[in-house]
Amino acid sequence: MLVSALSTLVFAGLLFWAVAGSPGWARVQQMFLDPEVALASLPRILEGLLLNLQVLLFAAIGVVIVALVIATLRTLRGPVFFPLRALAAGYTDLFRGVPLLIVLFIVGYGVPGLEFFDRMPAAFWGTIAIILVYSAYVAEVFRAGIEAVHPSQRLAARALGLSHGQTMRRIVLPQAMRNVTPALMNDFVAMQKDVGLISVLGAVDAVRAAQIETAHFFNYTPYVVAGLLFVLLAWPTIRLTDWVSARMRARERAGSIV
């Protein structure tokens, strides 16, 4: 305890001495860590963060739904379902490969050009792009979880007379979800900061607000403020993920197999 505290102190001291002792430190401190600018820009950035939270909420719901559908399609058996399986596989391949930024540009600027829809705000298209990309990842997580459920479980459920749908809903998916909870939460943490990318479409979220404030004050501190806010946003989920993972490991160690 004492050793770790002491070692942390020494380490922090050395780090501070190295950074603060650098020749350009005064300039960097002024440009990036100005308390007055931080305080002045905070309300606007917080307002922007509210938009990020909205996008996050809708995207999370959308991702779970789309990913479940894709994962279910990929686990269908039988030659009849080949087109659906292939489509789902193609989807995950494509959207796991394309950078999120490019999907944002294509969806944000391309799809409105089709003029199928009335004009929608940039945040809407940003949410769609995030759902498209993250669903591909999360679908693979779900699929791994579904395939990790022992085949005998499916057999036992069908033997009781449960339909395919009932077996999926009541038996397979609940167990799959439990298996993949830590992985899912990890993806959620990643998504929490990627919602900041919708700013490239012009949506005034926390990042965009910080950019505007930066231009206004001619000082980069608002970016640091926005960054810290994103960390604060993610921190509870990160801690929760660690806690859940640790608990599941403990459960496994306890030997709670069927």
Binding site: S152, A156, L160, L162, R170, I171, Q175, V258
Partner: peptide, 25 residues
Amino acid sequence: AVFQHYNLFPHLRVLENVTLAARLV
């Protein structure tokens, strides 16, 4: 039908396991 193993559903309580088919099917 009862098989060699992995018959019970680990996420459902014993009574829920026993009554599942009666309720759903």
